[in-house]
Amino acid sequence: MSSLAIFVWIASVFLDTAGRLTFKSAAMTERETELQRWKSMLRSPWLWAGIICFCLEFAVWLALLSLIPLSQAVLIGSINIVVVMIAGRLIFHERLDGLRLAGMSLIAVGVALAGGFA
């Protein structure tokens, strides 16, 4: 992969992770009714930050596919799963058990093999 492709890939992982984490922050509001909950989510700056991340991610993913084969992009794109789980652990203190750690490690190894980093 060219250094431009690697840069675009990292940008895509960053935007995807940021989008999911901001959506999670926006979704964590508790309100009396479902309608009130949606109203408060729509007012949340987190939700709009997330929407901006996903719109940018759309363009960045297209940019990545214009640089590398689709088969390679979907494989190395799987690292999102691992990064989001690590971030969930750090920010929201989500649980990581043995099965999850094993799954995350396997995905990381797979990404390294497919990306030619191994």
Partner: peptide, 23 residues
């Protein structure tokens, strides 16, 4: 698209799929 599926890519894909199943 006639993309090459090298042995490395297939090995990587196998690890990723197993990882997803564990998760």
């Amino acid at each position: 698209f006639g993309e090459q599926l090298s042995a490395l890519k297939i090995a990587g894909a196998t690890c990723i799929v197993l990882g997803i199943v564990l998760l």
